[in-house]
């Protein structure tokens, strides 16, 4: 049974034999896909307010982001990082709680969907404004350096859309100036909402920017889990060893709308025929079967286990109380005596 990731366990993910690591990653991907399919169905059934934003097609890149981080490392996931969040250690009940607005979730109904995190546990809580998390990750790493901690890294996720913001640019530059142990994993899913690459940037290859920032850069096929694990794992190792900041650019196709309100009708047929448009989960499962890493019965039990975990998480969150406006303290600052009271 795949339990919520234990951060201690992930130390061993670095050392695990390649096929064990591959299978663990596959199971996180499966759990993420199962969870997000459930969230979509709840959304369609009107049980989730706001929106649902899934990482379908990006699980292989995302899971690799979470798997090599250890206790004390900083993770700044973004919109499509359910697989990585789970592998990093976020309990899926916290996902359900945030989407369903439970008072017991990390955001307590004050923020929703993918805008969640537990900064106290080193998983930063993204804001919607893209690029903003890069410098915040840098700052968290600086604090660790100030305090004399050793052997830590930070990993901050971005898409090719977010890479075009000024905030991203400033964050990359300041990371290199500070020489913090940072890995940026940029997933080019070929659409910023509905806008394709040719209206997003005009450079030949986004990874070329690494040199300009003073990063080391690598490109990967985001549908190939082995490559994602190898290259992102190595980037984490290099950052931890004191190499300059690392940029990994992955190529995938977003296999969903921007959110579930979006039918993605703008994705062209030609785009859907590209090699990077394949479903990484299906490719991974095919490899598991082809290389006989697991038999059919084992695969079935993993699926059932994922479905059961998801059902339990949703059921738990559904039983919990929603926030109560009457009991809300309406304080945006922690220093209660300094709250401004206009009335």
């Amino acid at each position: 049974m795949l339990q919520t990731a234990q951060r201690g366990k992930k130390t061993s993910a670095n050392k695990a034999a390649p096929h064990e690591r591959f299978l663990e990653a596959f199971r996180w991907m499966l759990l993420a896909r199962t969870l997000e399919e459930k969230l979509v169905s709840l959304y369609r059934g009107g049980q989730i307010t706001g929106g649902v934003y899934i990482g379908k097609g990006q699980e292989a890149v995302s899971v690799a982001c979470g798997m090599f981080l250890q206790k004390g490392d900083i993770f700044a996931p973004l919109i499509r990082d359910q697989a990585g969040r789970s592998a990093f250690g976020e309990p899926i009940v916290d996902v359900a709680r945030t989407y369903l607005g439970s008072r017991q979730g990390p955001m307590r109904g004050r923020d929703g969907n993918i805008h969640r995190g537990k900064p106290g546990d080193d998983q930063l809580a993204m804001i919607s404004h893209l690029g903003a998390m890069v410098s915040v990750t840098v700052g968290a790493l600086l604090a660790k350096r100030f305090r004399g901690e050793k052997n830590f890294v930070g990993l901050s996720c971005i898409g090719e859309g977010g890479m075009q913001t000024g905030s991203f640019h400033e964050g990359m530059n300041i990371a290199a100036v500070e020489q913090v142990p940072l890995v940026i994993v940029a997933t080019n899913n070929h659409y910023a909402y509905s806008t394709p690459n040719d209206r997003e940037f005009a450079c030949a290859d986004l990874v070329d920017r690494a040199k300009g920032y003073g990063f080391e850069g690598y490109s990967i096929d985001g549908t190939d889990l082995s490559m994602c694990l190898d290259v992102i794992g190595s980037a984490v190792k290099r950052a931890r060893a004191g190499r300059p900041p690392q940029l990994v650019v992955a190529s995938v196709l977003r296999l969903s709308g921007h959110g579930e309100h979006d039918d993605a009708s703008y994705v062209t047929d030609e785009m859907k025929r590209q090699p990077f448009a394949q479903d990484c989960l299906k490719l991974t499962e095919k490899k598991v079967v082809d290389l006989e890493m697991a038999d059919a019965a084992t695969l079935k039990s993993w699926r059932e286990d994922a479905a059961r975990q998801v059902d339990e998480a949703i059921a738990t969150a559904q039983k919990e109380a929603a926030p109560d406006a009457e009991k809300e303290d309406w304080c945006a600052i922690s220093t209660r005596e300094l709250v401004d009271r206009p009335e």
Binding site: A132, S135, V136, V138, G139, A140, A143, E170
Partner: peptide, 10 residues
């Protein structure tokens, strides 16, 4: 932007 972002993270 990055100055304040870095300060927030720290």
């Amino acid at each position: 932007d990055a100055i304040v972002g870095t300060a927030i993270g720290a």
